Simulated scan of single mutants.
Amino acid sequence: MGYCMEMKGSKFFVPAEHTGLIFAMTKGQPYDFQLDSDGNISELEFTGEKLGSDFELFQSIAPYVQDGSYIWMLGEDGSQWRWVFQSGICKEVKAKVEWPDE
């Protein structure tokens, strides 16, 4: 049984020169990539259930992803995190939810 999660949003970009490599590296994974008119990966969609190795997948493609890209996820237990791409590295950043004082 897997861990259910959904993608809440993203800002994701890979230059056209790397799209073939990204498609090859992510084949069979629960992510679909959309190309813009220039052949850049400009969007991604999560199409499945957490594999357990999603973070490792994004670490492997991080050198080809534009700085400032991110993927925002919501887990079945209410946890939220982003996979953030910067300087060829992917980091997992957990959300901190704060309630205002009443």
Rank of each mutant, 00 (worst) to 15 (best):
K27C: 05
Q59A: 08
K94Q: 13
L44H: 04
D67H: 04
M25L: 11
A95N: 09
I61K: 02
K91Q: 12
K91A: 05
G20K: 09
D77H: 07
Q29M: 15
G78V: 13
P15F: 14
E49V: 15
G78I: 13
G28A: 05
V97M: 14
A95Q: 11
S10P: 03
F13A: 06
Q66D: 07
Q80H: 11
G88L: 05
A62C: 06
P30N: 02
F23H: 10
T26S: 02
F23N: 06
D38S: 13
G48A: 01
W81P: 00
N40H: 11
T19S: 05
E6G: 09
T26V: 04
E45L: 12
F85V: 07
G20P: 00
I22P: 00
W83R: 09
E6P: 02
N40P: 01
S87C: 09
K96P: 01
K27N: 11
G52H: 06
W83A: 03
L35G: 02
G52S: 03
V84H: 07
E56T: 09
K94L: 14
V65Q: 02
V84N: 02
F12E: 02
T47K: 08
G48W: 08
W81R: 07
G28C: 05
Q59D: 06
S53M: 08
S87T: 15
K91W: 09
E17G: 03
E43S: 11
L74M: 10
Q86S: 12
M25Y: 03
E102T: 08
F13R: 11
D101I: 15
A24D: 09
I61Q: 02
P15C: 12
E45R: 12
K91S: 05
E45D: 12
T47R: 10
I41A: 00
M73T: 03
D38T: 14
V84Q: 05
E45P: 01
P63C: 14
